[in-house]
Amino acid sequence: MASQGTKRSYEQMETDGERQNATEIRASVGKMIDGIGRFYIQMCTELKLSDYEGRLIQNSLTIERMVLSAFDERRNKYLEEHPSAGKDPKKTGGPIYKRVDRKWMRELVLYDKEEIRRIWRQANNGDDATAGLTHMMIWHSNLNDTTYQRTRALVRTGMDPRMCSLMQGSTLPRRSGAAGAAVKGVGTMVMELIRMIKRGINDRNFWRGENGRKTRSAYERMCNILKGKFQTAAQRAMMDQVRESRNPGNAEIEDLIFLARSALILRGSVAHKSCLPACVYGPAVASGYDFEKEGYSLVGIDPFKLLQNSQVYSLIRPNENPAHKSQLVWMACNSAAFEDLRVLSFIRGTKVSPRGKLSTRGVQIASNENMDAMESSTLELRSRYWAIRTRSGGNTNQQRASAGQISVQPAFSVQRNLPFDKPTIMAAFTGNTEGRTSDMRAEIIRMMEGAKPEEMSFQGRGVFELSDERAANPIVPSFDMSNEGSYFFGDNAEEYDN
């Protein structure tokens, strides 16, 4: 993207840094990872977990959730003011799984939030270390993106479920800051804005008074975040219109849905970061690795190297396929839920299948599930090659597409044709070009129609051997075009429920 120079890199967003050079960025990201790792080690000690239990991804998720809940100030305040039966607002906890007599047992633990905050700050040299908290939120978000298709949420806001490739980060909490905003897809931002506008339509006082002023500035800020994701002048001009509207209503909703559809071809720039579970960072720190000293990046080879040398386990339900569970977590670790499966298959070195073909449910185990038949197995999170994460949407291309997802959002900077089903997408653009945004709409449609099938995206960008740390010898991959490109292809993934 041309304006790259004016933006802070995501590592800076990730670490609240002012302008830093590459070495400083690597050190501050490393410091953040160190903090998460030290916190995780301490929690495993508190909970008396064995090494194996500490490497269980379900335990990692519970521990991450506990610290996120302990620092969720708004919710904590709300819980104190609106006490609900049987919930102690000062405590947080969740299921911890232990191996007892050759069987997995679930144990519900409860801790004072104050105590968890103390352990977290102690692991982070006394700081609140917001960057580390956001990092864990993005890992949870990436896992949700890989596990669930947001059909219901899309339909509720009037969008087409086939636009799911635009929904990265749709389950990120509001408090995820600049680093969170960077990884949100165009569809996620559109959905947040539509929800806001709908509230304004239904509630006369939404934009009024002292609160209304705050609401208005939040609305304009979200519009600017979305505008910054678009790469064409016409899309940005249309966002200006939406932002400046005196009284946002149905016309703005129409414009936003139009823009979301246009992003299936004229893709937005959305950041991709490899955020790993805390149970990967903990053992690495415990083994003596100093992330701050060595430096770390979320968008280069580092996460690949770390996963190459990590042992992570997962509980497996009786009829689940461990290899499929591994694929789910591998995609989440690489922030690749909406990437082209052919690119992923090449990088991973084994075939990556669409969601609907995987015999696996989510990673988390519900409290009512029976533990008797639970097994555990090693997650295979290694890769054959590594590639640089991208934040450009890439230019655009036609490809055989599917009944489910009709476009992709690249996660890796790797040369390819970008699949999208042009006739299906263009069919949504018939007729409606009147109104105050008509010239911009016409211009956007013209650009979409001009998108050429034979153009290559990320020209000359390749993948790298894991021994090639400096990215000196790019390998331009070859793809098996007979395979499906979309992950949520004609899909039956479970729906995400809060």
Rank of each mutant, 00 (worst) to 15 (best):
D468C: 04
F71A: 03
E375H: 15
H140P: 01
S262P: 13
V363P: 01
I445T: 06
N473T: 00
M191W: 10
M159V: 15
K91T: 14
G485H: 15
R391M: 08
S467G: 15
S353N: 01
R261T: 08
M196W: 12
D290P: 05
V476E: 14
R75K: 13
N483Q: 01
F489Y: 06
E192T: 08
R267G: 15
E192N: 03
G462D: 10
T215C: 03
G30N: 00
R174C: 06
Y148Q: 08
K273P: 09
V463Q: 09
I475Y: 09
K31W: 09
P95I: 12
C333W: 15
M189C: 06
W386K: 11
E443C: 10
D480E: 02
R195D: 10
L79G: 04
Y78C: 06
V343M: 06
R441K: 09
G450Q: 03
K452C: 09
M189D: 09
A403Y: 06
G132N: 15
I444G: 00
E380P: 02
H135N: 06
N59R: 00
E24A: 00
M222K: 14
L49P: 09
M13T: 12
E252Y: 08
T360S: 03
G86I: 13
H272Y: 09
E73M: 12
G485D: 06
T396V: 14
T62I: 03
T62A: 14
R446C: 08
T62Y: 12
G268T: 01
N368I: 14
I63A: 01
P283S: 00
W139C: 03
S482Y: 10
Y10R: 13
S467T: 04
Q20E: 05
E11D: 12
Y78K: 05
G362P: 08
Y296V: 12
P283N: 00
A366H: 10
Q12F: 02
S165Y: 02
D497S: 15
I116E: 12
G86R: 00
R55F: 10
T92S: 14
M222F: 15
C44D: 07
R348H: 15
V100G: 00
S392E: 10
G35S: 00
E53V: 08
T433P: 01
D290Q: 06
I96L: 08
Y313H: 05
E81S: 03
M66Q: 05
G394P: 10
